[in-house]
Design a protein around this nucleic acid. Sequence first.
DNA 1: CCTCCGACTAGACCTGCGTATAGTAAAAGT
DNA 2: ACTTTTACTATACGCAGGTCTAGTCGGAGG
Lengths: 199, 199
Amino acid sequence: MTRGLTARQAQVLEFIQDFTHGNGYPPTVREVAANFGFRSPRAAHDHMKALEKKGYMRSRAGRPRALEILQSRRGIPLLGKIAAGKPILAVEDAEEVLGLEPNFFGQGRFFALRVRGDSMIEDHIAEGDLVILKAQADARSGEVAAVLLGDEVTLKRVVPGKKGVELKASNPAVKDILVSPSDDPPRVLGVMVGLVRKN
Amino acid sequence: MTRGLTARQAQVLEFIQDFTHGNGYPPTVREVAANFGFRSPRAAHDHMKALEKKGYMRSRAGRPRALEILQSRRGIPLLGKIAAGKPILAVEDAEEVLGLEPNFFGQGRFFALRVRGDSMIEDHIAEGDLVILKAQADARSGEVAAVLLGDEVTLKRVVPGKKGVELKASNPAVKDILVSPSDDPPRVLGVMVGLVRKN
DNA sequence: CCTCCGACTAGACCTGCGTATAGTAAAAGT
DNA sequence: ACTTTTACTATACGCAGGTCTAGTCGGAGG
């Protein structure tokens, strides 16, 4: 769960985020209460105060609907160095957050990596490009994915075969990597769903 | 100016957009009034009603701060067919609006075009990619630009020379175009500042 | 066992804010 | 010349909605 939130508080936060995104403005205390079936606005108000104390939102006292969600969890974090073994996809660790609207690349959790080198050049993925990846632990055959190999992240085309998983570059000058079943299996961090290039 | 809006209405709309973007929630009628120095909330309310009637925003009667900006004018319009000769960069003509935050690609007015064909493939601009262009009427030598030739828009590298302006593709299979000074000069619509690829 | 905390109900206070009524004044159509 | 539109001021009504006081109930911790 999100850091230090009770299940109920996380639900409330999520509702507020969805409502705000869907309507263009945040809900009132009573609208939150109604959504959860609370008979008293006090219940919703308490949760919202808790969320505020924990730094998830800010509000202006006495002003209806005047609440802002902080730590938006929206937008796509551009991750710099990914530490080995750790499942670090939190926005807090982002070098930068790309200001794309949620669902720009579909549904799910996304992150971005800056391409170093030209190993995927024949797929027209050039050095400096930002590759957008959907966070998931497995890739279908032939998909381009960010793979954790030892303590380095590389972008490769993943092709499982009889002799193990093959990690193919799309540059003839770069040789493919074969991870045999006896080795540590390659860990897929996410599959490529898009690309952003800023000149 | 934006379609059918008076100068004042456009100012009000812009303020509401900025306020909403900056605070995470829309302003009240009185906050709009205060921003413009109106002594009566009525003045702001009238403008907001006018904006609503013209389809720029929607609001829920009686509910404080419950207004949603439609036709956001934020984001980058993806233009489909660009009619010949007309300076059409308005959001209204957009096939789709890319949900990027303003200034994602810097300051200025931007639009997007979907790449057809692979004439720029060696610059790793592939078919189906969305090229982001900054709207301006001139390109420096060597820049990739959207150029209006006759009544078609093409993406080419612009290189002015003695014999006229050369429009170079980055695909050896596609021959360059030379626009000699006696011809109609090519009209630059914008220069490329980025690229977005959605798989 | 007792106390704390989370998650609520019930009811009420009071003010912020949308909205209405009634104007004024200048610019722009027609 | 007249109506219409734009752009406001002044004042007020009434209710939506933030917030308060005063509780209940169950589960976790010491």
